[in-house]
């Protein structure tokens, strides 16, 4: 049945309305976005030392609260902001992010609102670090890939992290065909279970950086860093020259410092989201995290 999909556009309801253009060529030069030009995610890693990738849930505890949190993590020295899109079936996320996402959904937040929030933040912070949206695939499909890419480029969003988007599916080809020409990076995630073949595919498809999931399981703070993390990062580096960013299970400045010794970036999510209601506390925490990461 390999030819079944040749005719799929005929049977596919008009969800993915983009013409079925060929996948974008790797390393295609970014053209200027129609609105603000997005800064590249990769640029965040140009200076020496590791960077903090700070995860903030959009719309939590409310719109103003998440804007304040974005401000706090930016002024605290985060090198990249990962802005979480609330979603009703966050299968890769642990309880803190799931609960925050539910609250944000109840506040009427989805992908479109998150992009608008990012646009407002970026537009009012000339020196803001690059912003990548962390979203599940279905909200992107619902809004339509062309529209998502155009809105994100207009807002100045630099990239997308999509945990349920594999490197090698027809959907991936369609998304990259829309997003890459607008200079939007798509970051793929590698896992401890990834085979060498998959690491090569993930490294080849990823733009900006490669996100390494430190341990099996969902996002959330853990008492101990995963055993074998250094070996995992080493294996990943054999397959990519991209900056390597480690996330899942990093929640304290000490853990962040530890990870920064082997990685180019460290993602902290749940520990930040838990403090999103208190911008002052959050700002101090982010400065501690950044000190840990830079001290490495």
């Amino acid at each position: 049945m390999t030819d079944a999909r040749d005719s799929e556009d005929a049977v596919r309801p008009g969800l993915l309305s983009s013409p079925d253009s060929a996948p974008a060529a790797p390393n295609q030069a970014a053209e200027a976005a129609p609105g603000r030009s997005a800064s590249s995610l990769g640029a965040a890693f140009s200076r020496s030392g590791a960077v903090l990738v700070a995860y903030v849930m959009a719309g939590y505890p409310d719109r103003a609260g998440s804007l304040a949190a974005l401000d706090a993590v930016a002024s605290g020295g985060a090198g990249v902001i990962e802005l979480g899109v609330p979603y009703g079936d966050a299968v890769a996320d642990g309880p803190v992010i799931v609960e925050a996402g539910k609250a944000a959904l109840a506040n009427g937040f989805g992908l479109a609102e998150t992009i608008a929030l990012a646009g407002e933040f970026i537009g009012t912070h000339a020196d803001a670090p690059p912003v990548a949206l962390m979203t599940y695939l279905n909200p992107m499909m619902r809004l339509g890939f062309p529209r998502v890419a155009a809105l994100a480029a207009e807002a100045g969003v630099s990239g997308f992290i999509v945990p349920d988007l594999p490197p090698d599916s027809p959907m991936t080809d369609r998304w990259l065909a829309e997003s890459e020409p607008l200079g939007i990076d798509t970051v793929f995630l590698a896992a401890p279970t990834s085979t060498p073949e998959r690491l090569a595919a993930l490294g080849a498809r990823s733009r900006g950086f490669l996100y390494v999931v430190s341990s099996l399981g969902v996002t959330g703070e853990r008492d101990e860093l995963a055993a074998g993390l250094a070996g995992l990062v080493e294996r990943v580096r054999e397959h990519t020259t991209l900056p390597v960013v480690v996330g899942f299970g990093v929640g304290t400045p000490e853990q962040a410092a530890e990870v920064a010794k082997i990685a180019d970036g460290v993602v902290v999510g749940s520990a930040i989201v838990r403090r999103q209601g208190e911008p002052v506390v959050l700002g101090a925490f982010v400065r501690e995290l950044v000190a840990g990461v830079r001290g490495a």
Binding site: P170, A191, T195
Partner: peptide, 16 residues
């Protein structure tokens, strides 16, 4: 895929 439907949209951890 069955026509356009199906596929494998899961976190990388379980893909292998």
């Amino acid at each position: 895929f069955f026509g356009p439907y199906g596929g494998t949209f899961v976190p990388e951890t379980v893909m292998p």
